[in-house]
């Protein structure tokens, strides 16, 4: 990381020496609010038919909200940072946890239902405008963007609460206690996440100050727990680890492809 910062500073110093920075009509500092939408294809169950395991395919949209600010360093480079908030769902999740038998006749408790994942990120990025190749002058026109994202993800109960189905679904045929609250599993999903996003897009200016931005983003979340966990799950163990892994996988899914729409304002 240290190396990365040093290299970045070196690049910045090289490109800002000699070159003129026109910005947009002299404006170099802009703030943006944007929404990154990603398509989500997932399997879900009809609530009334939950016992029959009848899956249905659903299409959803994940939305991530960004607030960013950037500064035009030269006619080809913009540097900026952003804060992001993401909310997504792991539908019909099933996780187990050991419980104290004194409290209950059951030695395993489960949570069956939707888990809502909330993640807050911070990021910094460089936008590169292809002045030589496509003639775009930062901060408007075509660009490609490299973004480093850091954040934390937490899980809470989703919309589908499982306690309605105690003793009546296929998962509790051994007499498992179905916990109504996900938090009751005591799983700590407070994972630090590091992701990388590459985007390409276009920024247009309206009047002298307003900006509209559209970009297509491809992201990847690191620290996903390894690929073997995707294909193999050991039913004998407890699912703390799996849950973390699933959460990161889900997060990765939302980062994989996004279409970002944003509005900006050139402050100075």
């Amino acid at each position: 990381m240290k190396q990365f910062f040093i290299y970045s500073l070196m690049i910045l110093s090289c490109i800002s020496v000699q070159a003129q920075t026109p910005g947009y009509q002299g404006h170099k500092f802009g703030v943006y609010v944007s929404t990154a939408l990603s398509p989500a294809l997932y399997k879900d169950y009809l609530e009334e038919d939950i016992g029959n395991n009848s899956e249905i395919g659903k299409v959803g949209i994940n939305a991530r909200f960004d607030l960013s600010a950037d500064y035009t360093l030269s006619k080809i480079v913009v540097f900026g940072g952003s804060v992001k908030h993401l909310s997504t769902k792991m539908p019909y999740s099933y996780y187990t946890t050991p419980i104290n038998s004194d409290v209950s006749p059951y030695d395993v408790a489960s949570f069956l239902g939707d888990i809502k994942l909330n993640a807050n990120f911070g990021s910094f990025y460089f936008k590169f405008f292809p002045f030589k190749k496509k003639g775009a002058i930062a901060p408007v026109g075509h660009y490609s963007k490299l973004e480093m994202v850091f954040g934390k993800v937490v899980g809470t109960n989703g919309g589908f609460v499982a306690n309605t189905y105690i003793g009546s679904n296929s998962h509790n045929n051994t007499g498992t206690l179905i916990l109504p609250e996900f938090e009751a599993l005591n799983y700590q999903v407070d994972e630090t996440v590091f992701a990388f996003i590459y985007s390409f897009g276009n920024t247009w200016a309206f009047t002298d100050k307003l900006l509209f931005d559209f970009s297509t983003q491809f992201g990847y979340v690191f620290k996903t727990g390894g690929i073997e966990n995707i294909f193999y799950r050991d039913n004998t163990g407890y699912d703390d680890f799996y849950f973390k892994d699933d959460a990161l996988q889900r997060l990765n899914g939302t980062m994989l492809l996004n279409f970002n729409f944003g509005f900006g304002y050139l402050l100075f």
Binding site: Q20, Y24, G26, K134, G135, A136, I137, N202, F206
Partner: peptide, 25 residues
């Protein structure tokens, strides 16, 4: 400067400003 962009206002303003900036600075 050959741009792969529409001749919209932002492209025009951006280039005009840059041209005049080179003349001025």
């Amino acid at each position: 400067n050959g741009t792969r962009l529409n001749d919209n206002n932002s492209n025009q303003n951006s280039n005009i400003y840059y041209i005049l900036q080179q003349i001025k600075t």
